[in-house]
């Protein structure tokens, strides 16, 4: 059985945020609803400052705590390993947001993060929280899988572009934008990455590129101590922690 996963090479990532933009365009996200984000960290004080960054999609965990805590099974995991939200079951309790160690879930009924409020500029029709002019075709939207523009009062999250990857040819090891046969099925963030820092493929296929990279370059997962077992791996030259740790050491 396919188990989709992603590898992000931090030695290649330039922090350009093309992935963030592509995701927002592909999935019609509101400002502040960065399903795919790049987090920036700085440590130290001038002139000894270190800047680092970390691209962060949903980790699509093998053992997702968000699925475990959802009281209505609105959050569920597909057979091919992607965590999705059924918007017809979500009650908006936000327990999944509390339970996500990676902060990759969003509840967009809150105050807008930028003005003007795009929900007022492009008002929704009750089924959608807003009605963006550049949204995906209606037939691709799927409320049961959290794909498209969500209705009010529900939680949204990265789907690994499930509307694309779920249509990929069966048995394919990798979804690569350089391969004409798999390009259209490749997640938007992977497809647009200028330095090709992202790879997407089947973690259960020993011949996949993602598995080779994880093995050859000693891929690591974030917050292993939580037991969530992310399906997103980071390559960091073999270094262990890819995220700056001690909040207390950071300057305000």
């Amino acid at each position: 059985m396919t188990k989709w996963g992603m590898v992000i090479d931090l030695d290649k990532c330039t922090g350009c945020q093309a992935c963030t933009t592509a995701c927002a365009m592909e999935n019609s996200r509101l400002p502040g609803e960065s399903w795919q984000d790049v987090l920036f960290y700085h440590e130290g004080t001038y002139p000894n400052v270190k800047l680092s960054w970390l691209p962060r999609p949903c980790m699509q965990c093998e053992n997702p705590s968000c699925v475990a805590v959802c009281p209505t099974k609105a959050t569920w995991k597909t057979e091919d390993g992607v965590v999705l939200v059924d918007w017809d079951k979500c009650i908006g309790c936000k327990y999944c947001m509390i339970a996500c160690p990676y902060g990759v879930r969003f509840y967009m009924d809150e105050k807008p993060v930028v003005q003007p409020d795009l929900r007022e500029v492009f008002p929704g029709d009750g089924n959608r929280i807003w009605n963006p002019p550049y949204k995906m075709p209606d037939h691709l939207e799927d409320r049961k899988r959290g794909i498209g523009v969500q209705p009010p009062g529900v939680v949204s999250k990265c789907t690994f572009c499930y509307h694309k990857i779920s249509k990929a040819p069966k048995g394919v090891a990798d979804l690569d934008e350089d391969n004409p046969e798999t390009r259209e099925y490749t997640p938007a963030c992977v497809r647009v990455c200028p330095p090709k820092a992202r790879y997407f493929g089947d973690l259960d296929n020993p011949d996949s590129k993602v598995n080779q990279l994880i093995a050859d370059k000693r891929g690591v997962r974030l917050k292993e101590e939580t037991g969530n077992k992310p399906q997103v791996y980071y390559l960091s030259g073999g270094g262990a922690p890819v995220v700056p740790g001690e909040r207390s050491q950071r300057t305000s």
Partner: peptide, 26 residues
């Protein structure tokens, strides 16, 4: 406070997410 409180009345008991403390709480 909840966005869909009445949905919780059927969605929680009918979906049996026994791993969730909130399921048992409801």
């Amino acid at each position: 406070e909840l966005a869909h409180p009445f949905r919780a009345l059927w969605a929680a008991p009918l979906n049996f997410q026994t791993a969730s403390p909130l399921f048992w709480k409801i």
